[in-house]
Design a protein around this nucleic acid. Sequence first.
DNA 1: CAGTATCCCACTGGATACTG
DNA 2: CAGTATCCAGTGGGATACTG
Lengths: 114, 114
Amino acid sequence: MSRSRFGEPVGEQIEVCPVTQTQDIIAGKWKIIILWNLSTQTRRFNELQRLLPNISKGILTRQLRELEEDQMVHREVYKEVPPKVEYSLTPLGQSFIPILQSMGEWSKKNLVSK
Amino acid sequence: MSRSRFGEPVGEQIEVCPVTQTQDIIAGKWKIIILWNLSTQTRRFNELQRLLPNISKGILTRQLRELEEDQMVHREVYKEVPPKVEYSLTPLGQSFIPILQSMGEWSKKNLVSK
DNA sequence: CAGTATCCCACTGGATACTG
DNA sequence: CAGTATCCAGTGGGATACTG
């Protein structure tokens, strides 16, 4: 699925606005906080669900799948019973960590909690 | 309107996840790109609409109003005929510019356009 | 444990027509 | 020019029940 916007034909190339591409990846109510929770360590499905109060399994699955599609998250399945699945950041996901940190710091520094 | 999530009573205080607060502000299909377009200069309503192909007046208005509510954008109305309205970043909005830049650079460096 | 499979609903975005 | 005012449609999020 292509979620690009702002397609502008430039010769054979398509020029896409960079910040919009980023927007497309982190759009989704839980994406950022999921990445944040994976930034320090690998986590299992249930663990993530516990960390994200009020998220349902279905939604958590969908958000993780989309992050996987966008190569931000890696899903490692251990063939055991009971099943064990571990989520972690890919190199691309890791390269995004500084931005997550900036967001956290910006928020703490500039936003009064309302 | 309070859009905070993850409310956790801590004494009299409410503890809210910082990255989630940021998420709440930049959620919305056009928020980031609007901030981006205001990061270098003040812009008028129609100017913004031209810069954001395919956005309708109604939506642009709504997104701008929400950014105003969150103190990210300032709206300056000139009492003239025909009307002139200029949008610019508030100090809070300006403090967010480095993050926007990181996003743009991250995208250009790490995302192949797909 | 880590998911699917459904169904549902609210909200957000989008289109269009009208206005001070 | 810079909006409102409506109305509509799609989608994304949420709840619940079931499963390998």
